[in-house]
Amino acid sequence: MTAPIMVGDPYADLEPTGSRRFLYALNPLAKIAAVVPAIIVLVFVRDLITPLAMLALAYAVLLVGSRFAARSAMLLLVGLPAAIVLLGAGLAAWTDAALVDDTALVLQLGPWSLYAGALAIGYATAVRLAAMVALALIAGLTTSGPDLVRATVQQLRVPYRVGYTALAAFRFVPRFGHELEVIRQAHRVRGAHGGRGPFAALARWFGYVVPLLAGAIRHAERVGLAMDARAFGAFPDRTERHLVPWRTRDTVFVLAFFAASATIFAVFFPWGLG
């Protein structure tokens, strides 16, 4: 008898871990609604200090309200700062020197000049993009796909046929990753497509395509049969086993984040008065 193939739940590490990590207990729509206005306003900001303050706010919320796996910690503490440094330098190098030639000269390499104004523009843009990403991560790092789908179906009245079909398709991704790893291990055991170099690698990838497609078709058929067996789509609505309600704490979080964002924009007011 063949042992069943066990695939880890990709959403298992997004469960709440305690009362201190309040972001996991919030409705997914509350976390999205809280940050979307700030992200939209940041599109029109051109200074450095305002997005820097919003970046600090996003980091504060994430550090207090979420727990960090190794990957998310590396993303926030290493990946995002490194992206700011590299992106800022690249944007500064691409800035037209004629627009900022009235500022201090920082670097001269032959005919190419780097001015302080170009650095200010480059890093203001990089920090603004990083602030938008960090704000998006408030929901992205603490929300599971199933809960987001349930919230859209329950609060936004998205048809469950659309929501749960998208969720089923989204769950295919970790399944494909698991099956690809199984296929790779089987090929290594059999010694298929051995060798080194680009041609051997290309032959190995072609060897993965057919069994991966066959496994995808079998999995899609099983999912389709399971949905048919549960009368999916036969009725206009379905009874929800797991509810994701909108609670008072969701309203409090949205209003508090609105207030904090509005305070930052009002204090620094990056659009001037003229």
Rank of each mutant, 00 (worst) to 15 (best):
A3K: 11
M6G: 12
D9I: 02
A12M: 06
A12I: 07
T17F: 13
G18N: 03
R20N: 12
L23V: 03
Y24E: 05
A25F: 08
A25R: 09
L26W: 10
P28W: 09
I32G: 07
A34T: 14
I40N: 05
I40Y: 07
V41R: 13
L42V: 01
F44K: 15
D47P: 03
D47A: 00
A53M: 07
M54A: 07
L55R: 07
L55T: 06
L55Y: 10
Y59N: 03
A60T: 10
A60Q: 10
V64A: 11
F68M: 11
A69D: 09
R71M: 09
R71D: 11
R71W: 11
M74F: 04
V78Q: 06
V78T: 05
G79F: 02
P81M: 05
I84F: 10
V85C: 01
G90M: 08
L91H: 04
A92L: 04
A92V: 02
A93N: 05
A93C: 08
A97H: 11
A97N: 12
A98D: 10
D101C: 05
T103A: 10
Q108M: 08
G110M: 06
S113D: 06
A124Y: 14
R128G: 12
L129T: 01
A130F: 12
A131Y: 10
A131C: 11
A131E: 12
V133D: 12
A134V: 01
L135V: 04
G140N: 07
L141I: 09
T142S: 03
T143E: 10
T143P: 04
S144H: 08
G145K: 02
D147V: 00
L148A: 02
R150D: 06
A151I: 01
A151D: 00
T152K: 02
T152F: 15
V153K: 03
V153H: 01
V153A: 01
V153L: 01
V153G: 00
Q155R: 05
V158S: 08
V158T: 08
Y160H: 00
G163M: 00
Y164S: 00
Y164Q: 00
Y164A: 00
T165N: 03
A168V: 07
F170T: 01
R171H: 13
P174R: 00
H178A: 01
A192V: 15
G194V: 08
G195C: 02
R196H: 14
F199K: 04
F199G: 08
F199Q: 13
A200L: 00
A201F: 02
L202C: 05
W205G: 06
Y208F: 15
V209W: 04
V209S: 07
I217N: 09
H219K: 14
A220V: 10
E221S: 15
E221P: 15
E221V: 15
L225C: 13
A226N: 02
R230A: 00
R230C: 01
F232M: 06
F235G: 06
F235H: 13
P236T: 12
R238D: 15
E240M: 15
E240H: 15
E240R: 14
P245D: 03
P245L: 04
R247K: 13
R247E: 14
R247W: 12
R247P: 09
F253S: 07
F257A: 09
A260R: 11
T263G: 11
I264C: 07
I264Y: 01
F265E: 14
F265P: 06
A266L: 13
P270M: 15
L273A: 11
